[in-house]
Amino acid sequence: MRIAIPVDKQNLEASVNQTFGRTPYFLIYDTETKENVFIDNSAAASQGGAGIKAAQSIVDNKAEAVLTPLCGENAAEVLNAAGIKIYKTVRDASVMDTINAFMEGKLAILEDIHPGFHGQGGK
């Protein structure tokens, strides 16, 4: 299964980023092959709609699940439309701990979709 995680740095020692739409990087991790790819989140510098653009790149990278501490409503709408499940992670947790927690089935579905930080990008 391919999962996507917003991360602070481009290595497996990094922490989970506290935002989804404006995280600097995403880790795309394959739970079967352990293959990992870090992608730049080009949405981070968007004037607006960062969540939508970030979610679009998750869809395009064919992830089946997103592990994130927060997710805005527009991003969630894109991910839901693509059938991608969103799991809630602990903020600032290490990436490997988060992946292990997910594989052990310890992460819950993210229920509290927030209305988004619209305007954060300086609309």
Partner: peptide, 19 residues
């Protein structure tokens, strides 16, 4: 779109009117 008001998912265009 500089405001990312459109997304293309599962062969369908999605429009975010509020954005």
């Amino acid at each position: 779109c500089r405001f990312n008001a459109l997304a293309y998912i599962n062969d369908k265009l999605k429009i975010f009117a509020d954005v």
